[in-house]
């Protein structure tokens, strides 16, 4: 996964010679992250065969499984986002970050990562159950993640512009709300996926 991010960043570095505006810098970063998320999370349910999963669900409550999965995926995503941020600034320059509100930007990255992870965990479970692999995952996941992507793009753009907390507060509140609702929905709906 890290390899994917590094190569994506490197491709971006090769194709974008010269400086990037704040808006483009931000957009490119999130696009790389989005595809990384799809790549990383589509595997989360596909790697195991049905038998092993059924066995797992007789042992423990499916709700704890989805919570654990979401948590694990969220951690992976957060780690991945932070690492890709490091690589991204290394390759594409961090001048943009100079006047940014760094804690705010990091918060946006973390919240965005959690949101992507929570939404895509359930979607990848649905895609895996439908027995159709990556193609379905992209079709189902993209429209769900798009609103989240737009919200997070806006929040991180404001953070990069160094806007005060009093202004961005509601944006982050919205992001947290989105994350909480996504996780709750996944937690509520997941058990129905495994009822045959």
């Amino acid at each position: 996964m890290l390899l994917y991010v590094v190569s994506a960043v490197y491709v971006a570095y090769l194709s974008v010679k010269g400086g990037l505006g704040t808006a483009t810098w931000n957009a490119l970063f999130w696009i790389i992250l989005l595809f990384a998320a799809f790549n990383a999370l589509s595997r989360s349910f596909q790697r195991e065969d049905q038998g092993r999963q059924l066995y797992l669900y007789t042992l423990v409550d499916p709700r704890s499984v989805v919570l654990a999965r979401s948590l694990y995926n969220a951690l992976t995503m957060v780690l991945l986002s932070l690492l890709s941020l490091v690589f991204y600034t290394l390759f594409l320059g961090g001048e943009v970050l100079a006047e940014a509100d760094l804690p705010q930007f990091l918060l946006a990255v973390v919240l965005g990562g959690i949101g992507f992870a929570a939404a895509l965990t359930l979607i990848s479970a649905i895609a895996a159950r439908a027995g159709n692999g990556l193609g379905l995952m992209a079709i189902l996941g993209f429209p769900i993640v798009l609103p989240m992507l737009l919200a997070v793009l806006r929040a991180s753009k404001l953070a990069l512009d160094g806007v005060a907390w009093s202004v961005t507060g509601t944006y982050f509140l919205g992001l947290v709300l989105l994350d909480v609702i996504t996780v709750t929905l996944a937690w509520l709906l997941f058990p129905y996926l495994w009822r045959d």
Binding site: L122, I126, P143, I144, M148, T182, L185
Partner: peptide, 9 residues
């Protein structure tokens, strides 16, 4: 499941 998830979001 997909319908409910998508609609709420």
């Amino acid at each position: 499941i997909y319908n409910i998830f998508a609609f709420v979001l």
